[in-house]
Design a protein around this nucleic acid. Structure first.
Length: 237
DNA sequence: AACGGTGCCAACCGCGCCGGT
DNA sequence: CACCGGCGCGGTTGGCACCGT
């Protein structure tokens, strides 16, 4: 049995106070991130390391964007979710200034409902309640080579029609929140516009918080990483 | 004004991964 | 190779704000 990360009796829980925030910011400014387990004591905080890490990453980091998501960010989240499933950290990594928690919350509170209102299953990005003939995937087409998902959001009827006409695949991730990456039987990308003309969100040098992304392949499962390295990563480069 | 319902988001929890020994 | 500890991730929860009745 794993030991708890800290002695819960001696730690604060719940919302962070202004003083706690200041202590954490000050400590990290002087000493940098890392070694979260020992940080609270060193910084004079009655918090567990995980709590400090979360507070810093999700709220205090100076490079956070915050505020409403732009249309292109929404677009990107939807596309990446279609590709990656609920891998929020990977998705957030493509949105500079956004955290996985923020993206996850935004998906669950806004985008999920938006897609459902359009009659699209947010789990597999396919139209809901439609008895589609199962075509061999070689016959399928992408939704559109030019339309973006934000355009689709503005015109759900077109999007659905396109999804129906070209949106068939052999993938059965009906509602498990997984991506096609996880199933060999799919053998193809989900039928979304995958013309991802994404520019690198960072300039040189790569910020520390994004360096991890360069280990993308090691983060996804073996199967996924093979898929990613041959198919997805080139789209991002 | 009071109340209940709903949505949003910060924070917590448990688990898996990975590096060190 | 096995074990251990730290870190990071995704799912879930709790509390607050807002809105409608």
């Amino acid at each position: 049995m794993r030991k708890p990360c800290c002695d819960k009796q001696d730690t604060n829980k719940g919302a962070w106070s202004k003083q706690e925030d200041l202590k954490l910011i000050e400590y990290i400014r002087k000493n940098g991130e890392g070694c979260w387990r020992t940080l609270p004591q060193a910084a004079g905080l009655l918090r567990c390391g995980k709590s400090c890490r979360l507070r810093w990453i999700n709220y205090l980091r100076p490079d956070l964007k915050r505020g409403n998501f732009a249309e292109d960010e929404e677009d990107l989240i939807i596309k990446l979710h279609a590709l990656l499933g609920n891998r929020w950290s990977l998705i957030a990594g493509r949105l500079p200034g956004r955290t996985d928690n923020e993206v996850k919350n935004y998906w669950n509170s806004h985008l999920r409902r938006k897609l459902m209102n359009m009659g699209i299953d947010p789990n597999n990005h396919r139209p809901n309640n439609v008895n589609l003939p199962r075509l061999h995937h070689q016959n399928s087409q992408t939704v559109s080579s030019t339309a973006t998902l934000s355009e689709a959001l503005k015109n759900p009827t077109n999007y659905q029609q396109q999804a129906r006409s070209g949106g068939n695949n052999n993938c059965d991730h009906e509602s498990d929140g997984t991506s096609c990456l996880e199933d060999d039987s799919c053998g193809r990308l989900p039928d979304l516009n995958l013309d991802l003309t994404i520019t690198a969100p960072w300039s040189n040098p790569v910020p520390d918080n994004l360096k991890e992304e360069q280990n993308f392949e090691s983060k996804v499962s073996k199967k996924s990483s093979e898929f990613a390295s041959s198919t997805i990563l080139p789209l991002f480069r």
